[in-house]
Every structure is written in C-alpha cells, then in structure tokens.
Amino acid sequence: MYRPTVAEIDLTAIRDNLRAIRAFTPLKTQVIGVVKGDAYGHGAVRVAAVLEQEQVRLLAVATPDEAVELREGGIMAEILVLGNSPADFVPYAVANNIALTTVNQATTMMYGAAAGSHTVRLHYNVDTGIGRAGVLADDATEEILCSATIPSVNIVGLYSHFACADSDPAFTALQTTRFAAVIREVRAGGLQPAMVHLANSAGLLSSPGVMLDGVRPGILLYGCPPVPAPTCSVRPVLALRTVLEIVKELPAGHGIGYGRTFITERPTRMALIPIGYADGYLRGLSNKAHAIVRGRFAPVVGRVSMDVCALDVTDIPAAVPGDRVTLIGEQDGLSVTAQELAELMGTISYEVLTGISKRVPRVYIDKSP
C-alpha cells in the first residue's frame, strides 16, 4: 500500500460484540450474522469467517451477488438472501445451501419452477408495517399456506422487519402483534417453519421480548448501537486512519479549499491529509468535523475534496508530516465515532460505515488466541 489511508478492522471486537449479543439474548434464540453491504463496510468475507469460527450458523446478505462472494471466499455457513433473487440464481442457491426470500405466491411459484426436481429453501417476508417488500400481514396466512403447497419449495422461515424500533414503541408493539397473529395462524394451518425472526439491532435492544427463534443484529454487531445499550456492551470495530501529508504556513485572510468556504483569521498551520469524498469521508463534513492528531482535536477546514482535505493544526505546534491521524476511532485517549460524524451530516452511522469506499484498504487486526 503506497497511500497511508486505511480502515482498521478489529476482528477481536467482532468476536466480543457477538458474545455480548449472545449473552443478551435467550439461549434458544439464534444470532443471525448480518453481513450485507460488505458487512457494513467492514469486509464481508473476513467478517463472515470470524462469525463462522464463532459458530454462527446463518448469515444474512441483501443480494445474490453477496451470497456468491461469500461462497467464493470459502464461507460454508448457511446464507439467507434478504432481497429479491432472479430465477436463474435458484439452481446456484439450491446447490450451495442458500435460502431465498419470497414475498408472495407468484414469487414462490417462480422459485419452485426454477428449482425443477430439487427443493429451494425459502423464508417468507411478512410486511407488518414497514411498507416495503413482503406480503401484507392481513393477507399473509392464506398466501403462505397456499405457497407451501407449491412443488419444489420448502418454507423454512418466516420473518418481518421493524420500521421504527428505535423511536416508536407503540408501532413496534403493533408490528409484533401483527406478526405473532400470522405465525399463530400459519402454524394452526399446518405449516411449522423452523426459523421465525423479527428483531433487528434496535428491536432486540428496545423490545427484548420479541427475540423469537432468531435475531438479526446488523449495526450492533459492528459496535454502533442504534439506541442506548447499557446492558449489551459492544465497541466499535472500525477505525479510519491516515497521516499528515503536508504541513503548510498560511497567512491570515487566506482561503482553504474549493469555494474558499474557510478563510483564515490568523496565521495558520494547514495540514493536508490524503482522504476525501472518493474514500467515503464525505463533503458534508466540510468545516464541521475534527480529527485526532498528537492527542488533540484538529478541525477540518475548507471543503472536503475528492482526494484530500485540510486540518487546522495551528494549536498543535509539534505536528509534522507523517503524524498519525484518526478520523474515526480512538487515539491518544480521544475518540471520534461514526455516530458523531453521522450527526454532523444529518444521517446515520450505517451510511458513514458503508460509505467508506473500496479505495480505502481494510487492514485486519485479530488479537484472539
């Protein structure tokens, strides 16, 4: 690597976070390892390998291509594709222990026809209020029971997804009630799905009574709880680091960056760092964020460019080119979190983490024996 900008991924933190989540969930509840979106920007194959070592039996991805990436990376655990899959992916899924999501009888028929003389394993998505994919809860029982009679399919799971478990307890309770009714009716109709799952990260923290057969911790697994989690202690897995590239003296009244959105009010030591919005350090952080240099916070000044941005190190007189810079993570007793950056931009930590581009190498650290 010729460029010093890297994302450090602490695989020991993944292991510890998984253990904390398991300790928080009932023994009967299986933790589904959510590794969609390249494991929330952490590297799907490496994270999945750790989860597999820790006896996670089911991994969840969003797309068929993500499932293929895991299989080609040597991952052997069962995979569930949460999004839509085309008919021509079904033979691959059947041959490679990949379960697919179905949302209605027509989709189930398409999967069954594509499976031919084999059997495709399906999880049925029930829309209890999020208004995206899934059969509406009021129609679900009839659709699911009819789908179960279609040749070459095996409905092994039922799931739904909370819309606002981090903010609306009443609506979350309503979704839980709707889903429970569907499960009750489906079982009364003779279908006994092996895996019923509902709670995401926010759901398992805010509604621990709905941790059913499985839970799907995504952002929580990566150490960024979407709601306060004093009884489920996790820590961030990713740190984003670079170094000071250039340190330059600028006079008062001098602009920094495109658009001259920052004008120095005093003689200023400007430090250039090799990271920008093409790396996922976004333009919305311009003149808002700060980084850690030599045990001090250095503000980002001027617009974040595609490849570089500037820090004001005037109050860090010892700062010199080559000094380590932390933009997300801990250094010298200080920290910057993905959530803090998200709040500066009016978004969520998920977007900050998944937005770190492929141009930033992932460097893996594993202190586990």
Rank of each mutant, 00 (worst) to 15 (best):
T5F: 09
E8N: 13
I9Y: 07
D10P: 04
R15I: 05
N17R: 03
R19N: 05
I21S: 02
R22T: 05
P26I: 10
K28P: 02
I32A: 04
V34K: 06
V35I: 03
D38M: 04
G41Q: 08
H42E: 00
R46V: 09
A49L: 10
A49C: 05
L51P: 00
L51D: 00
Q53G: 08
E54W: 01
V56M: 05
A60T: 04
V61S: 00
P64I: 04
P64S: 03
A67Y: 01
V68Y: 15
E69L: 15
L70Q: 08
E72N: 15
E78W: 08
E78C: 09
I79C: 14
L80P: 03
L80I: 11
L82H: 07
L82D: 10
A87T: 09
I98K: 02
L100S: 01
V103F: 13
V103K: 07
Y111P: 00
A115H: 14
A115D: 14
L122E: 01
D127Q: 03
T128C: 02
G131P: 06
D138Q: 08
D138P: 02
D139H: 13
A140I: 03
C146T: 15
S147Y: 12
P151I: 07
P151L: 08
S152H: 11
S152Y: 05
I155G: 10
S160D: 05
A163R: 10
A165W: 05
S167I: 05
P169S: 13
L174R: 07
L174K: 09
R178F: 04
V182I: 10
R184T: 13
E185G: 13
A194Y: 09
M195K: 12
H197M: 03
N200Q: 09
S201F: 06
A202K: 13
G203Y: 06
L204P: 05
M211Y: 13
G214C: 07
R216D: 06
R216G: 04
P217R: 01
P217F: 00
G218E: 03
I219V: 14
Y222A: 02
P225E: 10
A229M: 08
P230R: 08
T231P: 00
S233V: 15
S233I: 14
P236M: 06
R241K: 13
R241W: 01
T242P: 09
V243M: 01
E245T: 09
E245P: 07
V247I: 11
P251E: 02
G253P: 00
R260K: 15
R260Y: 12
T261M: 12
F262M: 01
I263G: 01
T264V: 09
R266M: 10
I273F: 02
P274H: 04
G276L: 04
Y277Q: 15
G280F: 10
G280E: 11
G284C: 15
S286D: 09
I292T: 09
I292H: 07
F297E: 14
V300P: 09
S305R: 07
A310Y: 07
A310Q: 04
A310S: 09
P317A: 01
P317S: 02
D323T: 00
D323R: 04
T326W: 11
S335I: 14
V336Y: 03
A338Y: 10
Q339L: 13
E343Y: 11
L344C: 07
G346K: 11
I348K: 15
S349Q: 14
G355E: 10
S357N: 12
S357G: 10
S357R: 06
R359H: 05
V363C: 14
Y364T: 04
I365R: 13
I365E: 13
P369M: 12
